[in-house]
Write a protein that binds this DNA or RNA. Structure first.
Length: 176
DNA sequence: ACTCCGATTGTT
DNA sequence: ACAATCGGAGTA
């Protein structure tokens, strides 16, 4: 599922301003059987992770380190809490606005926290249906297999070795 | 009630 | 290499 999100467009009209990016890096979180997931079996459904237990195509947004936002696309069916963390996009439209939101810092949208800041994503979009504005997951381009890299997940302790991170080789929107 | 620490980022 | 910054989750 995560692999297929590469090349998709993320269209934000938060604040009435249009900013668009192509997804070039993401990570899969397998829910119940995945110790790194916020929806691992031990915890079950909680106030924070309940969006992941809902239908696919909605946003699971959470705060990390008390200061950054991260956004996931829920990919499992109801009660199957799978999700894909969006880790990086390449700007397509509204690069000036993205830079303004980022207060001139670079990189612009490489990294989950930076991506959210650049596109104006925050807790107000918790559980949001990504078929509708102000945040839409739209078709983009098919990324050929030879352009896709795979690796372990970044920043996690548990099950970090699982090959669940997918990225577009050589893209400026990919971290590290 | 209290402690630990994180799916990160920016600066030293 | 390390600080910033705070709420979720586990323990008591």
């Amino acid at each position: 599922m995560a692999r297929e999100l590469l090349g998709a467009r993320l269209v934000s009209t938060v604040g009435g301003v249009r900013t668009v990016g192509v997804i070039v890096e993401c990570e899969a979180y397998e829910g119940l059987d995945d110790p790194a997931s916020h929806a691992a079996t031990r915890t079950g459904a909680t106030e924070r992770n309940r969006a992941m237990f809902g239908p696919a195509g909605h946003a699971y947004v959470y705060r990390i380190y008390g200061m950054h936002w991260c956004v996931n696309v829920v990919t499992g069916r109801r009660d199957d809490p799978q999700a894909v963390l969006l880790r990086g996009v390449e700007p397509l439209e509204g690069e000036v606005e993205m830079s303004r939101r980022r207060r001139g810092r670079k990189p612009l949208a490489a990294g989950p926290g930076r991506l959210c800041e650049a596109l104006g994503v925050d807790g107000a979009l918790y559980g949001h249906d990504l078929r509708h504005p102000p945040l839409v997951l739209a078709p983009g381009w098919v990324v050929p297999d030879d352009a896709v890299g795979v690796s372990g997940r970044i920043g996690v302790r548990a099950a970090a070795e699982r090959p669940y991170r997918f990225f577009v080789r050589g893209s400026a929107g990919v971290t590290r």
